[in-house]
């Protein structure tokens, strides 16, 4: 069993048993119960809800993120263990959705944490979520779901964006711009 065979097995195994922790901000949380219960039953793919990021593999962001919740989401994301994946639910995570012009929600999730999969729709229906899970499992098997590697590679950019989002006083924004110039 050479190294990449091990990789293949570990990808297969992590595909077949995805443990998710979902950060139920906004209206996406309502879609999760039907996915878990008898109608759509995500458990048949080995996906089980977990209470803590330590035990989880996939983080579901199910709605708009205000700056305050972003701070918690980053903390939860960093507490998860590699290999970890993120799925963004709904248009609010893609481009801010209906809160596109609001001052305190973030517009593009992938600027702050690497997102492997987005699900379009102003709250996607359970079928879309099931389809997303299957899509994610495929990506894991093919090795395309490499969000956590990107986070390590571009760690300081992500941190810069996060500081930019968290800082609301003008002078703080000014020094971040000067750091970029350097």
């Amino acid at each position: 069993m050479r190294n990449d065979d091990w990789k293949k097995v570990s990808r297969l195994v992590s595909k077949k048993s995805l443990w998710m922790v979902h950060f139920c901000t906004g209206c996406g949380a309502m879609e999760m119960p039907p996915v878990m219960t008898s109608r759509y039953d995500m458990e048949r793919f080995g996906i089980a809800p977990m209470a803590t990021p330590r035990q989880a593999d996939v983080l579901l962001i199910t709605g708009y993120l205000s700056i305050k919740t972003l701070k918690r989401v980053v903390q939860v994301y960093e507490q998860m263990r590699d290999p970890k994946y993120v799925i963004g639910f709904g248009s609010c995570t893609i481009n801010g959705g209906m809160y596109w012009d609001s001052y305190n929600t973030i517009k593009d999730l992938s600027k702050y944490i690497p997102v492997d999969l987005y699900i379009a729709g102003c709250m996607p229906r359970p079928e879309a979520i099931m389809d997303a899970f299957l899509k994610l499992m495929e990506m894991i098997e093919k090795g395309e779901a490499i969000g956590w590697k990107k986070y390590h590679k571009y760690y300081d950019q992500y941190k810069r964006n996060q500081r930019m989002a968290f800082s609301y006083r003008l002078d703080e924004v000014q020094d971040i711009k000067e750091d970029d110039a350097k």
């Binding site: 570990s10 992590s14 590699d82």
Partner: peptide, 26 residues
């Protein structure tokens, strides 16, 4: 799962879960 009227994971799900946990990178 069967009692909850849903299909539920395959019988060998236990083995997969354990291997996945030990396959964690960090």
């Amino acid at each position: 799962a069967r009692i909850h009227n849903r299909i539920g994971p395959p019988i060998y799900q236990g083995y997969i879960d354990v291997f996945k946990l030990f396959a964690k990178k960090t």
